[in-house]
Design a protein around this nucleic acid. Structure first.
Lengths: 298, 298
DNA sequence: CAATTTTTAATAAATTTTACTAATTAATTT
DNA sequence: AAATTAATTAGTAAAATTTATTAAAAATTG
């Protein structure tokens, strides 16, 4: 790539202003420098870009083509510089976040959206996966930040307690369970349950809580996506246990009803970092953001 | 724009290969040069792009951001060079063609389409306007080539005879005129005519031909667009006189019928050039293309 | 309208700046 | 201890820029 951005700037200035001298003024260089720059560029591109008629320079057909193309290159370069040049209080960089399903789908979009608007130079990548995957990717350095449900298992990573998350039991508002004031363990045992597949963090919590009160729930269906479960419950096919975050919209819209229950369905969400990783300004900003009060309250 | 394309290339190579030494090999420069280039770039962007852990360089968050952005800039620059670098037999450049309505809408799309596929480095701009506008723009240098109906008026321009164009009289296939074998001047005088507005080249030819046989046509409607006239004729609102080129598709589809008539409706199309303009390779290629047999026959 | 002045781009020569290489150093890994 | 690697240093070559000059064209003037 012998052609330089500088040369393109010089060319564009001459093409725009029509005079070598004026271009030199605008660019803060002498007329001679501009002239040589131009000659050099024309040699590199193997052909004139201007017709020299008298002392006037007028763009020829190749020059006009270059003017368009060079403009696009320079615009891109300008955007690059703007994005990449850090200023105090406005860190530039790329942050790769891994999150579990519930967090990635229902909690992070709002956080990342607001963060990106605040820090325009930051580029956030979000990967959704299960706890094992996220820990692995974080350890080998493909992720900078992990957000998971429950404690971490892998060494080489540090976990910070982030915020609580409550699971709720949902049913169709028209179901008998929704009408009942007091739900007993026996009611829960009799219900038709819908749940995510084995291995889901949400399901793990639910089953442990049921076990604690001595009940083995009867599973009617296993569904791969939280959204599918919600639709099934709305359709009256059964009840399910999901994060309050995942069902908030449907509950407030009256599509789903939260059921009173005697279980303990509290859990804590964790932030995972690579041990000894230097926290970049961007990472620090994101961590500070995650602990803002509006993202902590449930 | 202090950052150079070369620097970006060096950076991308190091980021991709992970080693200063390897990058140097790929780029044909010494390890020291790569190292200095990188240091220079980091100074210009006011911050590190790699974390130096031992003797390994690993991209940090800013580096990752730059890698994406720099890639885009370099891609654009590569495209620019490909488009702008002329090779023998494949001229690069921008050709601005001005054409009258009929030519611009019904004749040039095919020519320009095939020309662009053949000469990939050429960028063709087409402006449609009336004869006066095209002559003016050509004279002041905003156009390189003009294609008009009938002779030119302006000095400083040279006209070359290009090809013929025949006007035809069209009617709905279901109209009585379409059924008649022999059409007399009297028939034409009685018909309900649809035409473009005053000033259209096509209309001028038609009115002159009618005048020659001593008839003043009765205008039912004036419409601003050729397409609108065709639709109106198809709808049976009257008859019209248009270029054979403009109605070819509809006639062969059976939507319109060409009417036999006793008028002389031949005309010649002209190519206009600026006097004394140096013909660029691209311009020469286009002129040669315009005179290819497949674009000359009607 | 010719002569002069001014303006402009290209070129030349000199100088400064930059980029590069070879050699060396320092640190890390094998 | 040997080998590998990135950074640094010092010297050199290359380049970009500047000042000065030239050549040509436009503008001004008598």
């Amino acid at each position: 790539m012998d052609v330089s951005l500088r040369q393109l700037e010089v060319f564009v200035a001459v093409a725009k202003l029509g005079h070598v001298t004026n271009a030199g003024e605008e660019l803060g260089m002498t007329q001679a420098a501009v002239s040589l720059n131009l000659a050099h560029l024309e040699r590199q591109l193997k052909g004139n870009l201007f017709d020299r008629i008298g002392k006037k320079l007028i763009l020829n057909d190749r020059g006009r083509l270059l003017l368009q193309e060079a403009g696009e290159v320079l615009d891109r370069a300008k955007i690059m510089l703007e994005r990449v040049t850090s200023r105090p209080g406005d860190p530039a960089g790329n942050l790769r976040i891994g999150a579990s399903t519930t967090i990635g789908n229902y909690l992070l979009p709002a956080v990342i959206g607001r963060f990106s608007r605040r820090y325009r130079r930051a580029r956030i990548d979000l990967v959704v996966g299960n706890t094992r995957q996220i820990e692995e990717e974080l350890a080998v350095g493909h992720l900078d930040l992990g957000l998971i449900e429950g404690p971490a298992h892998k060494s080489g990573l540090v976990a910070r307690d982030w915020r609580g998350d409550e699971l709720v039991i949902i049913a169709s508002p028209s179901s008998p369970l929704a009408a009942k004031k007091k739900i007993t363990v026996k009611d829960l045992a009799r219900a038709a349950w819908l749940a995510r597949e084995q291995g889901s963090g949400t399901r793990e919590i639910f089953e442990r809580a049921m076990q604690t009160v001595g009940v083995r729930p009867e599973l009617k269906f296993e569904l791969g996506h939280t959204e599918a479960i919600k639709q099934a419950v709305i359709a009256g096919m059964g009840v399910a246990c999901l994060s309050k975050l995942a069902v908030a919209r449907e509950v407030s819209a009256g599509l789903l009803a939260e059921i009173n229950h005697p279980l303990n369905l509290q859990r804590r969400l964790q932030i995972l970092l690579r041990q000894g990783s230097h926290e970049t300004p961007l990472q620090q900003s994101m961590l500070a953001y995650l602990f803002r009060p509006e993202f902590l309250q449930e």
